[in-house]
Amino acid sequence: MNRRRFLISLGLLGIGCLGGVSAISRLRWEGFGQPKELDLLSKLSPVADPHFSGALERVATTELLQSLVARGVLTPSGVDFDRLALACSSDEIESFASRRYARTELELYALAARIVA
């Protein structure tokens, strides 16, 4: 399926640009119909908060991106809040800066902080 292709291309791109944040801030989304640009910068701005720039430090940016896209949380039209809620409702809990988060929301905040910062 196209979505799979997209994920693979995302992975390759991630490796290609060695996880460089600026390089992946604009991605080609070929998953559905017409190729689209996944403008991460604008899509993630609403959830960006520099407080989270150190979150999930050990997880590569591409990995965060893939994880969120794979679960439909990040889509060409931005953050799908219903999908995010669904993912969070059964998530493991992660701790960051002494506060507790659902894993998926923390991934989102971490990615947003890295891309938008």
């Binding site: 969070c88 059964s90 998530d91 809990i93 701790s95 507790r100 988060y101 659902a102």
Partner: peptide, 15 residues
């Protein structure tokens, strides 16, 4: 409690 609260999206606790 902390887990259910965080998962609900209605709040959170610290550690």
């Amino acid at each position: 409690f902390s887990r259910v609260l965080v998962r609900s999206g209605l709040g959170r606790t610290s550690e």
